[in-house]
């Protein structure tokens, strides 16, 4: 028997929550960024699963959305990592709890 839609959705939910946990629970900015990328990927999986198991796969809506999502995620990763490098150059640290000069 083939995998059902709910299997793919559960995998996507698990991936999303793993990315979320990592993004919130880790101190290093780079791991936070990896967590964000995992969350984006989980959403993409969701889109493709619904496209495949949906009523009108010939409209290609899910596929087009995911293509643009991958593009935007790549741009965002590039800018995010450039920011981390710039911050490191200023403050010699990438730990997110050291970046609180605007607090309070």
């Amino acid at each position: 028997m083939n995998p059902l839609l709910s299997h793919y959705l559960v995998v996507s939910a698990l991936l999303f929550s793993i990315g979320f946990a990592g993004a919130v629970a880790r101190r290093s900015a780079i791991v936070v960024l990896i967590g964000i990328e995992l969350m984006l990927n989980a959403a993409n999986l969701n889109f493709i699963a619904f496209w495949r198991y949906g009523a009108h796969p010939e409209a290609l809506t899910g596929v087009m959305f995911v293509l643009f999502s991958i593009t935007i995620a790549a741009a965002e990763a590039a800018v995010g990592l450039a920011l981390i490098i710039a911050i490191y150059r200023q403050r010699k640290t990438t730990q997110v709890d050291g970046l609180d000069t605007l607090k309070g």
Binding site: F20, A21, V24, A25, R26, R27, V96, D97
Partner: peptide
Amino acid sequence: SSPSSLMG
């Protein structure tokens, strides 16, 4: 891990 990791 950050101080709020368990909450996270």
